[in-house]
Design a protein around this nucleic acid. Structure first.
Lengths: 256, 256
DNA sequence: CGTTCGATTGAGGAAGATCAATTAATGTGG
DNA sequence: CCACATTAATTGATCTTCCTCAATCGAACG
């Protein structure tokens, strides 16, 4: 029961992103692939294919299993009692889905595939049994929940402290980074999201998203791909980070 | 029977929760007290007193233990790389603190006491060992993490979909509810937060918070206590909820 | 009793929402 | 394959909300 296990896969992004050096061990450069492999060994999970627009589960359904994304990507959607609907998160390869259901044994959101995707089904009961034997498995579960909590807080912070343009830039940076960590190319990305969905996630209107993107193009930090305005190019991810920073110099918003 | 601690005023919690029958078992009407009792039995935790303004841990510190609030309350503060500081959550009696540290073995935020408080220290290693023997303990841990994730998402949703006035009302409703669940009176509450802190948490300026509060007073859903503008009265918590709803009728903000 | 910190309130301005018109991409049936 | 319908995106004009700046007031404290 050592946090050392939880750290192994976590030497991760930073070293990976900086060490552009060649691959030595697959484990070192692909922490998410490594996590998935060990998960498959330990749980031998049932696979489930979900097509674009379909949901793994919906809010209100009884909680029984957690899921891990093996391919594709998902959006998490919250629906409030009064009918407001909001995208509250995205899930990429290696991410866990379904933690919201544990507390009250019912899911609190929809998990909708944004593309043909595959998840591994991890029945919660079985997961508990196995993790009693294999502490590393439990460590993975806790690390995944912890990451989700940390990320949610960072999102809250972006919502509260960044103006619209910077929020869009920060979102694109997060998206590109998520792809980069998974070894996918970031210079040309297909968002598969409408402006309305991005705006919904970032707490602004679709017009504001559109204007922000146009501004980012003018600023030279992103570019649209040849045809259409859906796919975009991010030649330099760090430039997005710098764009965000620029908004913070005038007002470094400290608490009080 | 249980030793009748300072857990006297539970009738309100019962009525608030619309508990099944009358107060039969303490467990039924005081789930948080019950959780704390079983936690004490299972972990026999070290107690730690933290005075107002002191931190249990700070961002960057090595993660070793989780904590459960036994008395008092805490605010969680995130600090971004560029120095932005934000209140990202509050922790009341029975809440767990420290999940943010699990993933990378370092805490990502400060946990600051807002009043003289007591936490129970649960060394993570020990917790893992004990939970292998006592599955109920692990269930509690997971439920607490799950609740935190669910709550963070609800917060994101409030930030994204509610105008300033409604956000303040929703915050007060959340605060009063948190007290009610713990059997504390909600008709007179001491926030122990400055307008600046509330605004920081809700993504608005202190002036906007002040104006929102004045508006809520004029609307008759809250009132200031006799002396000072710090403590306030909430005669009817549901009225706050209705106030929030009123903002949603004109624009039931659906996705797309 | 003055100093300080927090809260309130007002006036003006800026960011972003709303409304509206146009253009671009996608899909459909002939 | 093309004409047409449909949906998404862009851009502009206007309006609202909330932020910023500033003055005032109140409470707490030495």
């Amino acid at each position: 029961m050592n946090p050392a296990h939880a750290e192994a896969p976590l030497a991760r992004a930073a070293s990976f992103l900086k060490s552009t050096g060649a691959a030595s061990a697959a484990v070192a450069i692909d922490p998410i692939g490594a996590r998935l492999r060990s998960l498959r060994e330990q749980m031998n999970p049932v696979r489930r294919v979900v097509h674009a627009g379909e949901a793994i589960f919906q809010a209100g359904e009884r909680f029984a299993s957690l899921y891990v994304v093996h391919a594709g990507l998902f959006k998490m959607i919250n629906i409030s009692a009064d009918g407001r609907e909001q995208v509250v998160g995205f899930k990429f390869r290696g991410d866990w889905i379904g933690f919201d259901g544990i507390a009250e044994a019912r899911h609190k959101s929809d998990a909708v595939a944004m593309d043909t995707s595959e998840v591994w089904v991890l029945p919660y009961e079985q997961l508990m049994v196995r993790s009693a034997e294999q502490p590393g498995l439990l460590g993975e579960l806790h690390a995944a929940m912890s990451r989700e909590i940390v990320h949610d807080r960072d999102s809250m912070m972006a919502l509260c402290t960044l103006p619209a343009d910077a929020r869009v830039a920060d979102f694109l940076r997060y998206w590109a980074e998520s792809l980069a960590i998974r070894g996918m190319r970031t210079d040309e990305i297909a968002l598969r999201l409408t402006r309305a969905e991005i705006g919904n996630y970032l707490g602004m209107t679709l017009e504001s998203v559109s204007r922000a993107l146009s501004k980012l193009v003018r600023a030279g930090v992103i570019d649209f791909c040849s045809k259409g305005r859906r796919d975009l190019q991010i030649p330099d991810v760090d430039a997005l980070g710098r764009f965000v920073q620029r908004y913070l110099v005038p007002a470094p918003a400290t608490l009080q």
